[in-house]
Write a protein that binds this DNA or RNA. Structure first.
Lengths: 188, 188
DNA sequence: TCTTCGCCTAAGCGCTTGCTTAGCAGGTAA
DNA sequence: TTACCTGCTAAGCAAGCGCTTAGGCGAAGA
């Protein structure tokens, strides 16, 4: 599976051959089929595990506080760090959905909707509490997720910024994006 | 070329066969090779044209004003509208770079650097003029581009928002992201 | 000792891939 | 009439594809 993640992320699902994966894992092509039903099934397993991990990470971040401002900071920070550190896995999660079978795609899409819902809830709770100000919580939540997801596209290990640095800056941007009122109880 | 754009965007470069493109264009597979040297060359032509169009559109938007605030609004608005309306082309431009040959990729990367430079310049001019406030102009410019590019990933024609609506909201977010000082001379 | 099981390989099957070849129809020009 | 050009098709080639088959080998259990 690790070899498949590497190949799928670098060359895409269709650009990867079963022989690529096998040689990356130090095996013969036939050995793959002892553990996985098909190449598509391998993608599905990777994608599902990745999505579940992301959802768990988002929920965990939201759970660290009851203050919307703190929740926002925690969730954006964790989300961005994850998309930078695990950009390999995150690329498959976000950019290889079209290669999934219709049934598998629907299952994955359901997890994605839950992730989006978590972010939307955070923004809406902040607006309701009067600590955030935005004309459209739905689109604003989408923008916050966008920012994090796109990190997986452009992040390079050899780049100038560490995942932590990016996450710190993006957490700051997140407060601005939701129109957080100045003077929240803590600045981290 | 239009048929190739359609296929590449829907299934990716490697997921598209020359027979897909040919039948999409109502031709035999052999007819493609009268007009294009190879499948990769077709991708390159599409990618280059798309990148040049994006760069032109960014420069045109920047040229509409000498006020950084107006420039930011114009460039983000145009960038977002483009990535929504032409999400098909934009997907190829942003997500099929890995399928290009090394020489073609380098040529395309040069155009991308120019696009990034334009956005960075707008932010830096605003900071220098004291109308924007951000701790890292480089990363902030990247975030602005990220937001626009990711629209091409999630935008659907059947969605609830029009390209204009998204662009309007995102222009607003852009002002917040760069920390534009309140009370600019015009609100659009 | 014999059998079974998990995990692997060598070989290869049937199909699809990108691309080429040979040739054809219609327009243009000498 | 003859020659050539552009834009196309039918047919097909060599290579690569996902996946299967048949069988080997060492550990575990009877």
């Amino acid at each position: 599976m690790a070899a498949a993640v590497e190949s799928f992320a670098a060359k895409g699902f269709h650009g990867t051959t079963t022989r690529d994966i096998a040689s990356g894992a130090g095996m013969s092509p036939a050995a793959l089929y002892v553990h996985h039903r098909s190449k598509e099934d391998l993608l599905y397993e990777i994608s599902r595990a990745g999505h579940e991990r992301t959802l768990a990470l988002v929920r965990e971040a939201v759970g660290t506080s009851r203050d919307p401002r703190e929740q926002l900071l925690a969730v954006v920070h964790a989300f961005v760090v994850h998309h930078a550190e695990d950009h390999t896995g995150a690329r498959i999660v976000n950019y290889e959905l079209a290669a999934l079978s219709p049934e598998h795609l629907e299952e994955i899409a359901a997890i994605r909707r839950q992730i989006e819902q978590e972010m939307r809830d955070v923004v809406e709770r902040g607006v309701a509490a009067g600590v955030f100000a935005t004309p459209d919580a739905h689109m604003t939540a989408l923008a916050l997720l966008s920012l994090g997801i796109d990190v997986a596209r452009w992040y390079r290990d050899e780049g100038d910024w560490s995942p932590e640095q990016i996450a710190d800056h993006y957490s700051d941007l997140a407060l601005r994006i939701v129109g957080a009122v100045p003077g929240g109880n803590t600045g981290r």
